[in-house]
Structure formats: structure tokens, C-alpha cells
């Protein structure tokens, strides 16, 4: 890609854009910001890609690190916009049609409700706890990769994650009541 191959650049974009976009979307709750962040990350890679040092980490972590930097900056600047976007969406996150099952509409409703509750709860977490939930659970990164992105030791990721999980339970319980565990389990069984 650095050698000027458009095909290589396109392949890299196709491979990494989804994760970066979703990371920014879950962190900010804004599709516009997620779109800007994704575009900015690849523009910077195009411009200053030679700054990437493979010895310091994987390209995936490098891209997520750039995305994280932009996300945190946007959160500081446009924190109020997050809630506005949520209000515009009516607090109902979009779900993929592939998750819907025509056989059990009640199960679909349970899944959509669960997904919506989780996304709302994640967005309500402080950014540093939010990002470990997004990276380790929603992006399904291992602790080591998440530690590279967040630029902190693995132990810090682990402790933050434990704290974030505790906070997330409280948030979900506050949003939906004490029956969260059973509802989520039923929804997962329906999948």
C-alpha cells in the first residue's frame, strides 16, 4: 500500500473498516462521528503510513489506536452530541436483519431489546471503562491486543474490564430491572 498500490489499500480498507467503524460507533453512539473517524484513520494512514513501526505492534492495533485517539477527542468536544443522536434515534439502535428469525418473533424482540439495552448501558459508562467493554467484548479482542490499543498493561485492561462489568450490570439492572440475567440467557438460547 505504501508503495502506491490502490488494490492493497482497498484490501486493507475492506478488512479493517468494519471493526473501526463499529468501535467508533459503540464508543460515540453516532454514525456520523464513526464515519468521520473511519475516514480520518485511513486518510492519515495514507498520508503518514511510513510512521508505522511493525516492531511496536500490529497494524490492527495501530489503526485502532488512531481511531481511539480521534474518538476520545470527539467525545471531549461533542459529548452532548452523543445524547442528541441517541434521542434522534429514539434510543433504539439498529440491528442487523440476519439476526432476525422468522420462526420466533418473540425471540427476535428479546434479542433486539437486549442489544438495545446493552448498547445504551455501554454508552453510559465512562470512556475508559467503555472502551475495554467495546474492545474485549463487542470487538472480541484478547486482552493483549486491547492493551496495545489502549496503551496500557494487560493487567490494567483486566482490572478495568472487571470494574466495567460490575458497572455494566448495575446499568442494565437500572434500565430493565433485576431479571436481566434470565432475559439475556433466554435471548442467547433463542439465537
Amino acid at each position: 500500500m505504501l508503495g502506491g498500490s490502490a488494490a492493497a489499500f482497498e484490501a486493507l480498507y475492506d478488512r479493517r473498516q468494519g471493526g473501526l467503524y463499529r468501535y467508533a460507533l459503540r464508543m460515540t453512539g453516532s454514525e456520523a462521528i464513526a464515519e468521520d473517524v473511519t475516514q480520518d484513520v485511513f486518510l492519515e494512514l495514507m498520508r503518514d503510513g511510513r510512521l508505522y513501526d511493525p516492531a511496536r505492534g500490529s497494524l490492527k492495533s495501530y489503526l485502532y489506536g488512531m481511531a481511539r485517539h480521534r474518538v476520545l477527542r470527539r467525545l471531549e468536544r461533542e459529548r452532548s452530541h452523543v445524547s442528541i443522536d441517541d434521542e434522534e434515534d429514539g434510543g433504539a439502535p439498529r440491528t442487523d436483519g440476519r439476526l432476525r428469525s422468522d420462526e420466533d418473533p418473540f425471540a427476535d424482540l428479546a434479542r433486539e431489546e437486549t442489544v438495545s439495552l446493552v448498547r445504551q448501558a455501554v454508552l453510559s459508562l465512562p470512556p475508559h471503562f467503555r472502551e475495554v467493554i467495546v474492545l474485549c467484548h463487542l470487538q472480541e479482542m484478547n486482552y493483549a491486543d486491547a492493551a496495545e490499543v489502549v496503551a496500557c498493561p494487560v493487567g490494567t485492561v483486566r482490572s478495568r474490564l472487571a470494574r466495567a462489568r460490575t458497572m455494566l450490570v448495575e446499568k442494565l439492572r437500572a434500565l430493565k430491572g433485576p431479571s436481566l440475567g434470565g432475559r439475556a440467557v433466554k435471548a442467547e438460547q433463542a439465537i
Binding site: 467484548h137 463487542l138 442467547e188 439465537i191
Partner: peptide
């Protein structure tokens, strides 16, 4: 719940 949300995260 997080697993469900992760599976639904396909945007």
C-alpha cells in the same frame, strides 16, 4: 447480553 450485542454488531 454482551455476546448477543457483539453478534448484532455488524454495521
Amino acid at each position: 447480553a454482551l455476546h448477543i450485542a457483539a453478534r448484532a454488531d455488524v454495521e
